[in-house]
């Protein structure tokens, strides 16, 4: 396999918060178009791992290479990487003072310097795709959680990223809204974008993921294709974890 096809390479990535060792020697290679689901107990470092990928968190040791560019603290490199990597947050983080459409226009017009008319066209196309174009002029707080998260996904897509990171995208949603967000994510996955998703939606993992990764205590404990991962877990810790989340 050629190196060019590796979208993300994490090599011996280590991170500390003060004296607390949050990430221990994370090695992870993700190919172009691959869908990876990361799960694990809270505090296991799964969110921190994906937040390192777009430099929301700094790491102290190791290397991360994204689409051929090594991630450093250099502001130009960071801005280049952030144009390649979109991120969807647990709490949506839409900008409440801007309408839905303005939320989508912000990065294309200010960061990527696209003409406004073109940006509006792109924005409406993606709002159409997440089935929310009729709400374009509303403000985020006027929408339901599921609608807000779909807007957040559309906002990411507007910067045309190669990689999408999802940080527990359905954890803050009311149960009846989870599926509308997952449906959009499944559609995205079918289109071949590289996706890393931190989630506890095991149904989604089984359906979409090429690979599922289990993290605990800042390390990758086990990774496998979903079928094997769920039906034939190897480590005790994963067995216990799966028992706990699948028991109800």
């Amino acid at each position: 396999m050629s190196a060019q096809e590796n979208m993300i390479t994490m090599h011996k990535v280590n991170k500390w918060y003060g004296d607390f060792h949050v990430l221990k020697d994370i090695n992870l290679t993700i190919k172009k178009g691959e869908k990876v689901v990361i799960c694990g107990p809270s505090g296991s470092g799964k969110s921190t791992t994906i937040r390192c990928l777009n430099h929301l968190e700094k790491f102290q040791k190791g290397t991360i290479t994204i689409n051929g560019t090594e991630l450093t603290d250099d502001i130009k490199v960071v801005r280049h990487i952030r144009a390649e990597v979109g991120m969807v947050f647990q709490h949506f983080n839409l900008f409440p003072h801007l309408s839905v459409l303005e939320n989508l226009l912000l990065a294309p017009t200010w960061v990527h310097k696209k003409p406004r008319k073109e940006a509006i066209k792109t924005a409406m196309y993606y709002l159409e795709r997440v089935k929310i174009a009729d709400q374009a002029d509303k403000y985020p707080n006027q929408l339901s959680g599921g609608q807000q998260q779909r807007v957040a996904i559309a906002r990411c897509l507007c910067i045309n990223p190669h990689i999408m990171l999802f940080d527990e995208p359905t954890s803050a949603l009311d149960p009846e809204m989870v599926s509308e967000v997952l449906d959009v994510m499944v559609e995205l996955a079918d289109e071949g974008i590289t996706m890393i998703c931190v989630t506890h939606e095991m149904g989604f993992a089984k359906k979409v993921a090429d690979r599922v990764i289990f993290m605990d205590a800042g390390q990758i404990i086990e990774e496998n294709e979903p079928h094997e991962f769920f039906d034939n877990p190897q480590s005790d810790r994963l067995k216990i974890f799966l028992d706990q989340i699948l028991s109800h």
Partner: peptide
Amino acid sequence: PKGQYEAADSLGLG
């Protein structure tokens, strides 16, 4: 909220 700063950062805003 911190999320607003993070969202602005992650979209590539300086």
